[in-house]
Design a protein around this nucleic acid. Structure first.
Lengths: 242, 242
DNA sequence: ACAAAAGTGTTGACCTTACACCCATGA
DNA sequence: TCATGGGTGTAAGGTCAACACTTTTGT
């Protein structure tokens, strides 16, 4: 394969994305089993082209991994310790294995570029997990949705990045009405509540939760959803876009 | 003067700082009258050395401009539009005037480096304005404390950066107890209130404000301050560091 | 005595929380 | 008819804003 074009990218600046999804009452994150090292897990990330904004870079990386466009994306923090990459033992693994992986594409110069010090801009994305068809990148052995409560040890400072992403999500959730990005088009009130419970990791009282949500005036009530369960059929709701 | 050492810094990555102070019931910001162009105002900023973290870079720039250390510093947003520098008319001014300013220090290569596309990390700082002795950098004609309500037209996207800095300050103010960084060691309750009013640009009811502040349990009441005014002498308070 | 502002106390409105109650559905 | 969960209503408690009242100081 042809040489990786380091000239196309800003050097020493990268972005990593925390892609949140929601399924089966669990907040999940799309992470990558890396091809390098042993049992190495990383966040989907990438570099910033000299010709694109950082938002475009984040959207591009997201599109590459999820095949989705127009996704809710938010930057939340910059990770800029001078040793976050260079000081990591995993970086030595990269230095060794990158040329073995593809000597033409990752020659000495490119390998040095990739394993140099990087400042990383953290983004988080909120997606409807059912719409995602994960597409692995050239460094990914596979991609996997993992419950936020079951995140493995990750390389570099990626566990820390995940921690800050959840903090930011929690903080933004009740300011802006972004939670619905994690749900399908229509949903029951219980599903919204379970989503909030998964994110905040705490229980809410159903009656009060319903009242609070409806008072926001952002949900329109649709027909009832017949579940077949031996109880009253819940209403379906849709998020008003206005 | 000797050549500017672009090799010491990460290229295409910069930081700008919004340095907040408080004086005479006004929230103020330290801005720089630039030596280049006509009536050009910029935020104090700098580059990130390859050997320092972004926090260290921010602290270094702050120390250079205020001669203060251990200042409250917080990153709040990255500004990454591809045209924020290159698309700005002011960048053409820089291209012309930098070599004229000092042809040895800013040769063709250095000028190209400085006027290339930059991604900028925004930091804000909170300082006791009385402790600051502004020290201008090599590009500053002078530094000036300006009321936030009286900010001039600034170059690049620096007005936008200021806007986001105030947003972040307001948001952080009631989460963490950071406002006291803008006040001297001791202060009256009225002064705290006027500070909050300056930041939020709205009035508070004195009795309720006092109650709320005291209920936070972070202030210790000291002796009274005899002002000489024909009214009850207010207490002085100090922020508990614990 | 009076004006000015500090500081305390009181009241009512509003919002949140807990929980009782009724409703629809299938076994 | 009963169990189950959906949905509504209500009362108690807490928080917050408005404002009255007392206190201290200098004129």
């Amino acid at each position: 394969m042809k040489k990786f074009e380091i000239e196309d990218y800003i050097s020493q600046l990268s972005m990593d994305s925390v892609i949140f999804g929601y399924e089966q009452k669990e907040l999940k994150v799309l992470i990558s089993k890396f091809k390098f090292g042993q049992d190495s897990w990383v966040l989907p990330g990438g570099y910033i082209k000299k010709t694109e904004s950082i938002d475009q870079a984040a959207a591009r990386v997201l599109k590459e991994r999820t095949n989705l466009e127009n996704i809710y994306l938010e930057q939340f923090r910059v990770f800029g310790d001078e040793n976050r990459i260079v000081g990591s033992p995993f970086n030595e693994v990269m230095k060794k294995e990158l040329p073995l992986f593809d000597a033409e594409r990752f020659d000495e110069e490119v390998t040095a570029w990739i394993t140099s010090r990087f400042v990383c801009i953290g983004f988080y994305a909120l997606v409807d997990i059912n719409k995602v068809h994960p597409q692995k990148g050239e460094f990914d052995e596979f991609l996997e949705w993992r419950s936020f409560k079951d995140i493995p040890q990750m390389v570099y400072d990626h566990n820390e990045i995940l921690h800050f992403a959840l903090e930011a999500l929690r903080q933004h959730l009740d300011e802006k009405l972004i939670g619905f990005n994690l749900l399908p088009e229509t949903f029951t009130m219980r599903e919204v509540q379970e989503l909030y419970e998964a994110i905040y990791d705490k229980a809410f009282t159903p009656s009060n939760f319903q009242k609070k949500m409806l008072d926001l005036n952002v949900l329109e009530r649709l027909e009832k959803k017949f579940t077949g369960a031996q109880n009253k059929a819940p209403y379906l709701y849709r998020f008003k876009k206005n």
